[in-house]
Structures are given as structure tokens and as C-alpha cells.
Design a protein around this nucleic acid. Sequence first.
RNA 1: GUGGGUGUAGCUCAGUUGGCUAGAGCGUCGGACUGUGGCUCCGAAGGUCGCGGGUUCGAGCCCCGUCACCCACCCCA
Length: 423
Amino acid sequence: MNARAPKGTADMLPDEAGAWEHMQRTAQRLFARYGYEPVYTPIFEHTEVFTRGIGEATDIVSKEMYTFQDKGGRSITLRPEGTASVVRATLEHNLGANGQAVKLYYAGPMFRYERPQKGRMRQFWQIGVEAIGMAEPSIDAEVIVMLMRYFEELGIPRSSMRLLINSMGDEACRPAYRDKIAAYIRANSAALCEECNRRAGTNPLRAFDCKNPTCKDVMSSAPLLRDELCDDCAAHYSAVKRLLGDRAIAYAEDPSLVRGLDYYTRTVFEVQVDAGLGSQNAIGGGGRYDRLMEQYGGPPTPGLGFALGFERTLMALQAAGIAILGLPVAEVYVARVDSSLGAAVFALVQELRDAGIATETDHQARSLKSQFKQADRLGARAVVVVGPDELAAGEVTVRDMTTKDESRVPLGELSERLKRLLG
RNA sequence: GUGGGUGUAGCUCAGUUGGCUAGAGCGUCGGACUGUGGCUCCGAAGGUCGCGGGUUCGAGCCCCGUCACCCACCCCA
């Protein structure tokens, strides 16, 4: 048998998984403070949820989806991102009834069929939020501020992150601009790559994303949407920027930031770092999607959100030299002098755990010496030594592993003494 | 889908022009006067040298095939 995880997937071993749980707890606490509640949607959806929401012409839909037919003949797709599902669920359960504001966050694995490389996996985790039903620019700023706060709270220095923002316009100004770009591409057809020429007919704005140097050059002289925004979009965009400025959030406007999903309108943003991600650089990104609900047959409902990549964030953390530890697995280690004392030790260990102390002990009849080694390796702050001498007196020996102080403690006072020692 | 790179102990890697029972560091386990850690010392366990063929008296080292992984392009978290 092939004892290997499938291509593009990876096992999360304890060190990494501990860090991940810390990242998740941090998100839960922070997002709750901003008014967000958790939501869990299925890991697979009817394929249509993604084709309609994300857009047929996007890379995600046209070549990266894990799509299969289930035994009932339905076309099913493993979710490549979170927003489509959350919006679908919001509509299905009518969470936004009568104009209710909905603030949700989610976390879980996403799936895209791509060639894996550094910072890009076929299964990868995202944490994301969706703020649905709110049109004012203040919610845009709030979402962006919260994203930056999250990274900061984890320990990524502000100076090593770059926040890029742009406006994609709306139905009032984008179509005309789209046509303009399409025309621009056709006019410069000879100088642009095949892919960009094809984009003229499908998604002209994506030509800004092309990394081909000549294309980049040609596109740098293309008309910018920023200069062609309708009054409403322009006002919204400048309000967002002003609010960010008020909060001392440094950002850079990037007119070429268009992002790969069709549902974006108005505000889009991306957080990038320079180290640790290989040729990738985005650790989080998102934007507004004011027409998405209608794509699913719902009422016109504004919304926006972001998603951040767990693996990439962790790589950025590591590159910044920041270590994240999981929960302690042994604050106290109970060592026994002789394995025949097993029953007494068993009872004692359970008592300490019931008292809320992370406690570990030996189940391999190891020597006292190696039990101490184990305690040291696990980072135990104290070792409780159970021996015949102590037990005869109804006591145990407690060794403070930092100070090396040892003292006899009556069994009845043990958990209190240990709690004091652990402080 | 395209291109490049790599596959030797749990991990990181050495392995000379093909030649005796395949090595190191780290880690693990045991020990260094009888019930005790982090340092040091000693010892041990652990490898189908990715897999399958071929060349050769003999291959981890050469040839062919195959698989896997990594990195990059495209694009994104």
C-alpha cells in the first residue's frame, strides 16, 4: 500500500497543529470582538454554487475545481473558497431577512487542483469572514482593520506586511470600463501575449494580472478604472481610504489589483509579505461583492469579506522568526519509583487532571531517570515523585524543575501546592 | 498543462575514478555505585540505498524505464 498523503496535501503534525490551533483561537477571540459569529458550511457543494458565484471564466472554475458526480448523479465540487458557500447559506436560511446585518466567520480546508509548490497546496486552510447586508464604507474599513489586527496579534510585524487596495467599480461604471480595456487590448493586440488577447473576450481586467513583462508594460499605459469610477464608487473608495488613514493603517493603492474572482465590486484588498512564501506573496485578501447574492437568486444585498491562508500565514510567521506554541501537554509529571506503585499513581494523576492541571505520567515501566528526562522534554514545571517511603507517610515529593527545590507534600494538599507553583 | 531539480537510517545529509559486513550529526533507547532531568562520556537499536529492469566478477554510485516529492511558470490563500 502507498502510505503517502495524496499530492498537494500534507499532514499537520503536532508542532504545526498546535500553532494552527493557536491561530484559530486567536481568530475566534478577535473576530468575536468585532461582532462575528462562527458558521460551518459543507466542504462540498453543488457545483453550480461555485460556477455561478466565482465565475465560469476564472482560473478557479475553469481549471482548478475538484468536481465529481456522486452516486445520485449530482455534480458535486469540493469548495475552492469560502465566500460562495457562506453567501449561499445566508440566502438559504434567510439570515439577512428584512435587511438584517450578518457577520460570520469560518475556518476550514479548501481544495484547488493545481500543481503544488511552495505556499500552494491542493488542500489548504483558510480562515475568513463575511459581512453581509452592509453597504457603508465603514464596514469595508472595519473588515480591513480587523484583518491587519489579526496578523499583528499573531506577531507578524506591521513593517513586514503590505496592504494593497483598489476599487473595482460597480455595475454603473465597470461595464463601460471593461469595454474600454477590451478595446485597448485589441488595439495593442500585437504586443500582448496570447492569453491576454483571449482575455479581451472573457475578462479583460485580468490582463492587469499578467506577469509577462511586455504585457505589464503595455497594460501600465492602459486607462485606469480609478480614473473612471462613477461618483458613487469614487466616494465610497475615498471614504474607505480616509477611514483607514484615521486608524493609522498604512495602505498602498494598486490599480492593477483585480483579483481572480468575478464577484468582486468596489473595494478589493490584499495583504502581502516578502519572506517565506517562495514565489507567492499574498497571505490574505478579499473584497466587496454587492451583486453576489443576486447571482443566487436572492434580493440585492451588499457584502464583503476576506480570507486568509493558514499555511502561508504560518510560513510568514516562521520567516519572521516567531515561534507559536500549542497548549502545554504536561505542566506536571508524576514519576513513580517503582512500577508496582501503578494504582496509587493512576489515582493521583486523575486527581490532578480533574483539578485542571495538565499532567503526564509513564506507562512504559521506565526507570525513574528516564521519567525525569521525559518530564524535562515535555517541559513540566514540576515532577511529583511517588515512592514507597512517601506513600507510607501519606505524602509525595514535589520537585520544582526550575529551582530544583524538593519538598514532601501531604497528598491532601498536593493540587493546591502545585497550582501555586504553576502560578 | 509546461520546465528544472531531487530521491541513502525518525530528521538533515556524506558517500571519493563502481570494489570488503553503507557512514556522520541530531533525535530515540540504555548505562556512567544502590529512588531524580537539562551538560559530558560510553553503548545500542534503526536503512528493501524510491521501485523495476539492464551492464559488470561486483552498483548507492553507470544505462533504460517508472513512481514520488520539491521548485518555478500560469494563478492564487
